[in-house]
Design a protein around this nucleic acid. Structure first.
Lengths: 325, 325
DNA sequence: TGACAGGCATCGGTTTTACCGATAGACCGG
DNA sequence: CCGGTCTATCGGTAAAACCGATGCCTGTCA
């Protein structure tokens, strides 16, 4: 006994122990978690055991088939995730604006990933070669926010300016277009045509639907008789066969479907697109750099020339292919 | 060489290293930080050195007089604080609702700490004897939020329902009273008297002032001619000597000053009082338990009997001393 | 300008502990 | 009742955290 060690000094858990807990909970068992962490199973057992000694309470309920966290363990693992992420962010925060490195996980809806991000990625890769950008397709609505909050993504391209407790940077406004069968011709769209044509829209709960409903309401058009389809491609197919017309954001129309005419609306309507991140991570150099690259490529500065060469009639004919190998 | 160890595997910093960085930044030097952490100075030097090796960049600028964080170090230490707090919260989260232990740091404005919290503390101490509640007086306005965000407090009694990105639980409404010199007598207050009396109020930037301005504006009374004083006690002294009248929340009037009459307003006005915490810590058993104790003692359930026996005339005479040793 | 003082980095040596492989024990399905 | 699967335990080893002592740097003062 060299030192009294001040009996029951308030010891804190080790990051390794917290990572062990997280891995076991995620993997559903010690063995699988050990494989994912590249450590031995006994290490994980000891680490979780230490943690349970510290808390004085079992965190995992072990059964032959499946290891599941106790209520206390469930609460604990959430804070453990925060601790591990924050510890990793310490390294990211220490990076300088130049000479960035690491992995950046970016979530985006499909059309954004397909048509918006490629030029941004090229420019960003040129400026920060040591950064690996990982694209996550967040297909369904709200998936981007979920990936951010669960710590599976660092940045998310999202629609709208909602999302409280997220840090948003607006990027561009995505114009809504009037879509009709090719046979309609390209004469300008009138409010009367909007009111008299059968409307095919996305489901009523959708943010798109809400926005269109408000827009048409201002024009005195009722949307209660609109037909709803889950998939945009289905809607477009219906329009192509003459069942009605629809309104869609320009970006949702890529790749450009055949047999349709895309026309500007009599009154402009658009949805805001933004890049989101967790507020306390917004200042990390990596995240700031990529956000800056997004703004530089898509933001208001480049709003002069539409970044998307969509064949929209009745617009000033300024088609500049700007091809890239 | 037993294992290749996968050259430059992305190692994460140790919590001890992060605590070292935090302590040095807070203490302004290695020696003082070592004393506060009860470790040797060389340990801290090595720990911070390891951290700087990991980040590949100096985090502290050492000079003979004072050690100050570099820009990178400043960013890093913020995330380090988050990591350390989250790691500590893992232990708190694992606690069961019964058998709580630890230290709970509660911030409150002075009158709240003096007249609101004591019965709550007695009840809470009886229910959770192993918990040490530490009271922090956050005197100036907004200090509670600041203490929460800087990690120096776990709960804060605050005024208002503002404070986005904080988790709020409303507690009670604190009525505003009309205060005049004793010589005025106790006849009911009229709007005309409010309009014709010289107003003595808190400074214009204050939340109290804003609330009173809105209230009086609804009654058609202008506040531009009001006199402003920094200290409530000064205001009350001026009122006592007949320089004018004022409006103050009931709680701000404790202890009850002599030589004044306190009367209800012609139209009721009140400020909301709430207990706040960081959103991601709101589910910690310790914090939930104390919040529950606050609600049980001060919340709407006990709203029937006013918890404060203030001598307000022109009210139903229900004076129940309810003395406590 | 030179010596002093305060404060941090470096250096061996010691102790702690994180990690491993192997093995024993617990549990479920057959 | 037995085999398969999963976790806890046990020595042993290697890494690293920690310490006291010492050297170095810098700013200060005579």
């Amino acid at each position: 006994m060299t030192r009294p060690k001040s009996t029951s000094a308030h010891v804190q858990p080790t990051l390794a122990q917290l990572r062990a807990l997280i891995a076991v909970v995620d993997a559903g068992g010690f063995g699988e978690a050990a494989a994912e962490l590249n450590v031995s199973q006994s290490s994980l057992s000891e680490a979780v055991g230490k943690l349970e000694d510290l808390t004085g309470r079992p965190l995992l309920r072990r059964s032959a088939r499946g290891t599941v966290p106790t209520p206390a363990g469930l609460r604990a693992v959430g804070h453990a995730r925060s601790a591990v992420q924050a510890a990793g962010d310490v390294l990211l925060a220490a990076q300088d604006d130049s000479q960035l490195s690491g992995v950046l996980r970016v979530s985006s809806f499909r059309s954004g990933a397909t048509y918006l991000l490629p030029p941004v990625l090229v420019a960003f890769r040129q400026q920060h070669p040591a950064v690996t950008v990982k694209l996550l397709d967040g297909d369904r609505a709200g998936a981007g926010e979920q990936l951010l909050r669960s710590g599976q993504a660092d940045l998310a391209l999202i629609e709208g300016v909602s999302a409280v407790d997220l840090s948003l940077t607006p990027l561009l406004m995505d114009d809504y277009l009037f879509i009709a069968p090719e046979s309609r011709g390209t004469q300008p769209v009138t409010v009367q045509e909007l009111a008299e044509s059968p409307l095919l829209l996305s489901p009523r709960g959708d943010a798109c639907f809400q926005r269109i409903e408000t827009y048409l309401g201002r024009l005195g058009i009722d949307t209660s008789s609109a037909t709803e389809f889950e998939q945009d491609s289905v809607t477009l197919g219906m329009v192509r066969h003459g069942l009605g017309i629809t309104l869609m954001p320009r970006l949702a129309l890529l790749p450009v479907p055949d047999g349709l005419v895309l026309l500007p609306l009599p009154e402009p309507l658009s949805r805001p697109l933004a890049v989101a991140t967790l507020p306390w991570r917004a200042r990390l150099p990596l995240i700031q750099a990529f956000t800056a690259a997004l703004v530089a490529s898509l933001g208001s500065a480049s709003g002069q020339t539409t970044p998307l060469a969509l064949p929209v009639w009745n617009q000033s004919p300024k088609l500049e292919p700007e091809a890239r190998g």
